[in-house]
Nucleic acid binder design. Structure first.
Length: 262
DNA sequence: ACATTGACCTGAGAGC
DNA sequence: TGCTCTCAGGTCAATG
């Protein structure tokens, strides 16, 4: 699930539910999702404190505990957050970690495949630098840097868009959407785009990200004119009615319309 | 040095 | 029904 729009929705959800409540207990149900920190260390750092703000960069959500204490959440392919009242509801399936707030509510980190991780950080900027992440697509990214980034890439355009070191936030689903909106073939060489195409692509990225966030990143709420609702075997292009095609690019399945995307 | 592949982890759905 | 196989919205280390 979680690409930039999804994680942005997680951030909003996190901030709307989980700030300024004392964290009574941190329950680590599966230590495998912790990155560089033991359950004991995490508990020492988090228990009896509160979250006071959230921040997102690419596919990461940062939660501030005050001072130099942050948590960095990554969601892999199947992770999400869930806030609930413990008396009325159980934690979701595949919950790997739960923050139990003192008022009877809790925040669960659920992840079926455990491909995501929770890490501690002193500050988001240092973390972003250490992980080699590029600027966020909705934030630091400007057209000039985007153009230069693509020009220096020798991979397919789809791979370049998904390269978190170039710019952060786009994954498999939204790279397909962006390429469809800009009418560019996913296997186009990233370094060989003309100026006009780069501009169109950049604009599509912005539009698609904002649209998705606006619709809470729910696929079923995306416009019919988007590829997303038709992104499946046998799907039809919402523009020309032709059959949507699937190809493997760098190990990931890319869907596109061979007629509209050249 | 860079880009691509395989491994990591678990379950859902298709096909037999 | 039950088994096997493939695939899934991500990333990292190993490989070419």
């Amino acid at each position: 699930m979680p690409e930039l729009p999804d994680v942005e929705v997680f951030r909003q959800y996190f901030e709307a539910t989980s700030l300024r409540q004392t964290i009574g207990r941190v329950e680590v149900l599966d230590a495998a999702i912790l990155d560089g920190v033991s359950p004991q260390q995490l508990r020492e750092r988090v228990e009896d404190r509160r979250f006071d703000s959230g921040r997102r960069h690419g596919k990461y959500l940062f939660a501030h505990l005050g001072g130099d204490d942050w948590l960095a959440f990554h969601f892999g392919m199947t992770g999400y957050l869930r806030y609930f009242r413990e008396k009325e509801e159980a934690a979701p399936k595949y919950t790997r970690l739960t923050f139990h707030f003192s008022g009877g509510y809790a925040l669960a980190y659920s992840s079926l495949r455990k491909l995501g991780k929770i890490a501690v950080a002193e500050n988001p900027d240092g973390f972003i630098k250490d992980r080699g992440l590029g600027p966020d697509y909705l934030g630091g990214a400007d057209l000039k840097a985007f153009r230069e980034g693509l020009q220096n890439s020798r991979s397919s355009l789809k791979s370049a868009l998904m390269n978190q070191g170039l710019f952060a936030g786009i994954g498999n689903i939204y790279s397909d959407e962006v390429l469809f909106q800009a009418r560019v073939h996913p296997e186009t060489a990233a370094g060989r785009l003309d100026e006009e195409t780069v501009r169109r692509l950049f604009q599509s990225i912005n539009e698609v990200m904002r649209m998705a966030i606006d619709r809470d990143a729910e696929p079923e709420r995306m416009p019919e004119s988007y590829l997303l609702p038709h992104r499946q075997k046998g799907g039809r292009c919402p523009v020309c009615g032709g059959e949507v095609k699937a190809v493997k690019i760098s190990g990931r399945t890319a869907y596109y319309c061979p007629r509209c995307q050249r």
